[in-house]
Design a protein around this nucleic acid. Sequence first.
DNA 1: ATAAGTTGCTCAAAGGTTTTTTCAATTAAT
DNA 2: ATTAATTGAAAAAACCTTTGAGCAACTTAT
Lengths: 343, 343
Amino acid sequence: MQKRVNIKTIAELAGVSITTVSRVLNGLGPKYRISAPTCKRIYEIAEEMNYKPSLVAKSLRLKKTNAIGLILPDIGNPFFATLAKIITIESKKRGYSIILADTENNKDLEEEILQVLLDRNIDAIIIAPCSNKRSHIDDVMSTGKKIILVDRYFFDGKIPYVTTDNYFGALEATKYILENGHKHLACIQGATDTAPNIERVKGFTRACKQYGIKNYKIVGDSFTVQNGYLETKLLLSAAKNMPTAILCLSSTILLGTLKAIKEADLKVPEDISLISFDNQPFMDYLNPPISSIAQPVDEIGTFATKVLIDSLEEDRKKLNLNVKLRPQIIYRNSVRPIQNGKK
Amino acid sequence: MQKRVNIKTIAELAGVSITTVSRVLNGLGPKYRISAPTCKRIYEIAEEMNYKPSLVAKSLRLKKTNAIGLILPDIGNPFFATLAKIITIESKKRGYSIILADTENNKDLEEEILQVLLDRNIDAIIIAPCSNKRSHIDDVMSTGKKIILVDRYFFDGKIPYVTTDNYFGALEATKYILENGHKHLACIQGATDTAPNIERVKGFTRACKQYGIKNYKIVGDSFTVQNGYLETKLLLSAAKNMPTAILCLSSTILLGTLKAIKEADLKVPEDISLISFDNQPFMDYLNPPISSIAQPVDEIGTFATKVLIDSLEEDRKKLNLNVKLRPQIIYRNSVRPIQNGKK
DNA sequence: ATAAGTTGCTCAAAGGTTTTTTCAATTAAT
DNA sequence: ATTAATTGAAAAAACCTTTGAGCAACTTAT
């Protein structure tokens, strides 16, 4: 393993000091009146030796790593995978690397990971916290280290966030169900201690109340296939009092729901109507295609990254914003109209 | 932004030298005969001040960053997303961080990203190269920096890899189709300059030949929905000479194929049989459920990570292995048996 | 009483940058 | 012929660790 060439080697070869090399290669030649021939010589030698400054040494000296920590609850979930992709690409464009971590929805692990990243002296953090336990996140905030929440956020808005307008999405989706004449609804929710889930449930509830519907249920407790499956099983087992439509609060929950529906030998939408959060390409090919609430995941990722890095580079910028981007409902064919009398 | 407490502060507070603090906190107290009271004092002060050594400084001194670069062609693809998740979690367990990068299937970007990671002095690289252009990867190898390929690999085996036995998977899947009586097959492939794709095509071809089938087509050129859609359109437009079964070489291709089939108003498996690489949860809920070749993605991720880190830690280990893990065919209901005479 | 060994710790260098301060040599001004 | 200003560059400190070499003081052995 050959030694990397460093600035000292270049200096010796060029017959100048380390200082001069550093200045020239950082484009400060003119500013410090380094003569043109010297500059040229240094450039040539650096090129020839394929010199690249050590980013570690640079980080130490500059107290800037050009790295951003990205902490997500589940990279396997397509929603977060897409988010990670967008953020990684955008960061790269701006000269930042992404240090990725998966908390597996575990608050203790999240806290531990956060600490590791801070020890690495990352410049900023992008995080979708796994719960409403937030003291470790507030701590980061209070040190002045830049941090931005994506998707998951906290209601008081003290920590900047970019997320979906979850309330709006659930409200509109539920209205759509209700306008199709459904009188008995269920909502299968995810992690109950996360703001997006709470807002979605609020939107669902608000729509029901607005339409004078009292016969609705809110069940479940995690954004997993398993949860969707079990809760749907329970809903369907209440033979008489079975809902005619279900709102699934994530695409993972939807998959579980579909499995239970299939096992019960029911048909969508004839026997039960369905609509789900998180649009995914495969939803077009289910039978029937499932209507969904598409979160603006690209915009969340690009915007959060842009705003964060901007605030890093012009530090007058305080990075203090709460953004809720509107989701879009993709209408497919999974909610059937119900005649007044008929069930 | 309060200053982080460093080892110097601790030393002053404890009234000992920096050296002593470093040794105690690295558990070398006994080895260097630091007295028990001194050790205790240092531990207490460090605890109280919540001292965490700067990983940047440590990296510089030790020439070890405890970071692994993970370079993938498309994190949005569920296969790679899952791989990223596994690798991230396994690395974390062993005390390594993952620096993630997405090459967007662009060879030039891949090369650029690789250089950035090397400049960051990462300890090792895990990469799924986007093409068979490999000189930049060979260069890394020749510097002695540890590198391991996942999924995508090179035939000469000079660079260690962990991947799926793609040939076997395609061979078995195709045999399964042929045993169901199909005489006219098509294979929609992905990036033609990648080993997994080449092996899959080879398996497909071999099976056809083995069964004496000459009427088969191999079309397509990328692992995308778009490619699957367009190639299927073409296949279906050859009205008379339409294949009765299609092997899709990725789940993304499958989605495109499904779209084209739907637009042509055909039914799976009545009108056309289907089987796809990459098992995904949603395939169970398509109509009909689509049989697939499940790659052992978890094993690929955990094994590659384990082997890589092992070789990093006991450096006698040469890290020189070519591993092909067997995929498993998930039989669903997308291939229909064909009677001898009947089409 | 001296040599040898043990105990408990410190000094200083190294790792690769950037940056503040300093300085010598040359040119221009008085 | 001085003084002042400009030009071109270097020395050294700083960032925060780890570590090899060394040393004073005390204890034990001869």
